[in-house]
Each structure stands twice: as C-alpha cells, then as structure tokens.
C-alpha cells in the first residue's frame, strides 16, 4: 500500500468516488456486491428505503428475500402492506421466510395503505415493513420516515418508476430494472452521498420447473400454437 493510499484511508478525507463512511445500523442484504455499495453495509434500519420499480415482478422481492428470511428468525412480524398481488405461501417459504412471522395487510385506499404502513413502521413489534402505497405525497413521506426512525426495523417502500424524479426523504433510493434474468440497481441516493456505479445482481436461481423433463417436451407442446407451422414458435426461443 502506497503512502498516498494510506493517507487517503483517513476517514476525514472524502473522495468523489466514495460515499462517506457513516455509521448506520443495518441488516445485511445477502448480496455482497450490494452490501459494499451501501452505507452501513446493508439495508438501513430505522430509515426508509425506497425501491423504484416499473412493473412488479422483475425480482424486486427476491432482492429483499435474504434479509426478510434473516429477520423472520426473531419473534417480530414481517408485514406486507397492500401488496400488488396475493402472496403465495409456498414461494415465500422456499425463500426461507418463516411464514408464522409474515402478515399481510389488505387495504381499500391509498390513505389506508399509508396509515397501516405508518402504524406498522412505528411499532417495535415489526422487524420489517414492506409497503406498496403507489405515489406518495411529500408530507406522507415525512410521516413514514419519522415512523421508520421510531420503529427501527427494515422499512421498504415500493414506488412507481415515474416517481424517480420527485423528491423523497428516504435516505436510500434505488431504481430497479430488469436485465434479462438479472436485476440492475441504480442507487439514486444514499447516506454519505457519492455516485455509485449501477450494479447487476443475480437475485436468486432462475425459476426452473422441476418435474418437467420426465414428461418430455414434445408430448406437451401446446397444440394450437404449432398447427400450420413447422417451425417452433418464437415464444419457445429461450432468451436465457
């Protein structure tokens, strides 16, 4: 290590390519590459994390799964507030999440979603709150952030991607986009500042379907799709 590198190790020196070394209580994300880019080396506790997603289903929940699975080992609740679809128990279980810790809160309006999210964030009985409130007004954001600071759990809010240009008090904002079967993360904002290069993560094994091979592919070819066509329909071309 050169003398210059040693001098630059001084925490009082801030370099443009680095985020400042800040003390943040955190929960490991389960992805070493991502941990390395986050202040506190993990998802922050007691602070909102805003994840911006175009369409639900690109792997955004698998990104959270290792942390959720870890948190489900203690006796507090993991809460899903107003999820976009019905959660499927076997899939959550296969990610290692203890289902007896998971609760789902269904709401009828955006106002109810915000209320329930705030209530859960504030509670010390919840180790993680993941909410889908849709676009959130600035005032509501502040309330959520205050509640997250009080509750000290993992606090994740999913926002539509068009909100990326709008201000948000969440100390950590990450935009997620699909990259084939992987997930690309653009860190828009983090504590300590600094620009981070986009990350592309493999958020878990690709959904393979066990049990398929023994039946054989030909036997189950969807008949209406191949009639009148000798070639395999384009939908069967694997992009993987």
């Amino acid at each position: 290590m050169s003398a210059l590198d040693q001098a630059l190790e001084n925490p009082a020196i801030w370099r443009g390519s680095q985020y400042a070394k800040v003390m943040v209580e955190s929960i490991p994300t389960g992805f070493a590459e991502l941990d390395a880019s986050l202040p506190g080396r993990g998802w922050p506790r007691a602070a909102l994390t805003e994840l911006l997603v175009g369409q639900p289903g690109i792997g955004e929940l698998r990104l959270l799964a290792p942390a959720l699975a870890d948190l489900s080992r203690n006796d507090r609740w993991l809460v899903l507030v107003a999820p976009p679809y019905a959660p499927h128990a076997p899939a959550f279980e296969s990610l290692g999440i203890d289902l007896s810790r998971l609760i789902v809160v269904a709401t009828r309006s955006a106002a109810e979603t915000l209320w329930a999210a705030e209530r859960c964030l504030r509670s010390s009985a919840c180790s993680a709150v993941v909410a889908w409130p849709g676009p959130v007004q600035e005032r509501a954001w502040r309330r959520l952030q205050l509640a997250a600071e009080q509750g000290k759990g993992l606090s994740v809010v999913f926002s539509p991607i068009r909100c990326a240009t709008q201000p948000s008090p969440a100390p950590l904002r990450i935009q997620l986009s699909p990259a084939r079967s992987r997930l690309t993360l653009h860190i828009l904002k983090r504590r300590g500042g600094g620009w981070a290069a986009p990350l592309t993560l493999d958020v878990g094994p690709r959904p393979a379907v066990p049990g398929a091979p023994q039946r054989g592919r030909a036997a189950a070819l969807p008949a209406p799709l191949i009639t009148g066509s000798s070639r395999l329909p384009s939908i069967f071309q694997d992009i993987g």
């Binding site: 679809y85 959660p87 499927h88 128990a89 076997p90 296969s94 289902l99 007896s100 379907v209 049990g211």
Partner: peptide, 16 residues
C-alpha cells in the same frame, strides 16, 4: 402467527 407445515420445495411464484 400460525405455524406452517413444511411442504415441497419447488420453485413457485411469489405472487398469484
């Protein structure tokens, strides 16, 4: 808070 019985570990979608 209901404990779940362990079932087969197949890959299933999170949302239905």
């Amino acid at each position: 808070g209901t404990a779940s019985r362990q079932t087969r570990q197949e890959r299933r979608p999170l949302w239905l």
